[in-house]
Write a protein that binds this DNA or RNA. Structure first.
Length: 272
DNA sequence: CAATCAACCTGGGTGC
DNA sequence: TGCACCCAGGTTGATT
């Protein structure tokens, strides 16, 4: 689920309501939700901790801690972070709970149990940052930068755009949508794009991500924002999950294939 | 360097 | 109804 727009939607809510809160208890209903250190140490170190700014890098959510370290969360496929008021009814698939001093709870819920949270030192966070490509909504992500990422790569566009080392934050939904918006076939070799193609792809990547944020994310099944709200972006899809339906732009039938092991949707007429 | 696949998990949908 | 099977928004590591 959570690609850049979904993590950013959650971040914005948490950034407005979490800083200054103090953790008074950590409940690990499923200890697999903690990557490192070990679950018991994780709980001990977070208990009594004051929470600071909430930031995002790619699909990672980062909560700064008073002691200078960071709580990092990656939600993988179905993870959600819910900030609940005191005495709120239970949430399904809760794997961990941070109980806050004012009675609120930050709940980590995850149907498939792939999601992880962990503690990171500033050096570890810096290493994570270095392992990731540019933020597609940052000023440094220019069309020229995208051109250099695509240059001399014989890889198909789809797996390249999904590669977090190349560009960070895109996932299966937004890659399919960006390629549709740019009129480019997912199997097109990255090094075959003309300058005008690169310009269109650059604009399309930013546009689909910004639209996703505006609509508070895409919810097909499991994604929920920090107060449990589903997104609205699923109604804006050009191709994703629209196989068999007609293209809004040219009326051709949308196809679904498999590219790089991922379900891939595209319009055979307007994507070349 | 690139492509493929298995693994990690649970649950929903489909076809028999 | 039951059951086998396929699929799913992500990432990592082994293999070819």
């Amino acid at each position: 689920m959570p690609e850049l727009p979904e993590v950013e939607t959650t971040r914005r809510h948490l950034a407005a309501h979490l800083p200054g809160a103090r953790v008074v208890a950590v409940e690990l209903l499923d200890p697999r939700a903690v990557w490192r250190p070990d679950p018991a140490t994780f709980a001990t170190r977070l208990t009594g901790m004051d929470l600071g700014d909430v930031r995002r890098r790619a699909k990672y959510l980062v909560v700064d801690l008073r002691d200078g370290d960071h709580l990092v969360v990656h939600r993988r496929m179905t993870g959600n972070l819910l900030l609940r008021e005191p005495a709120a009814p239970p949430d399904e698939h809760t794997v961990a709970v941070l109980r806050l001093a004012d009675g609120r709870e930050l709940r980590f819920c995850d149907l498939r149990r792939f999601a992880r949270m962990w503690l990171a030192t500033p050096a570890e966070l810096a290493a994570l940052d270095r392992s990731l490509g540019p933020e597609p909504l940052s000023p440094e992500f220019t069309a020229e930068r995208l051109a250099s990422i695509l240059a001399n790569r014989r890889r198909a566009l789809k797996p390249l755009l999904l590669d977090q080392r190349a560009i960070a934050g895109l996932g299966n939904i937004y890659v399919d949508e960006a390629l549709f918006a740019a009129g480019l076939r997912p199997t097109r070799g990255a090094d075959t794009l003309q300058p005008a193609d690169v310009e269109r792809l650059h604009a399309a990547i930013r546009a689909v991500l910004e639209q996703g944020i505006r609509n508070e994310g895409t919810t097909f099944r499991d994604y929920l924002g920090a107060i449990g709200q589903p997104g609205r972006n699923q109604h804006m899809m050009g191709v994703f999950k629209r196989e068999g339906k007609s293209c809004e732009r040219c009326s051709a039938v949308i196809l679904k294939t498999r590219v790089a092991g991922r379900g891939t949707h595209y319009c055979p007429r307007c994507q070349r």
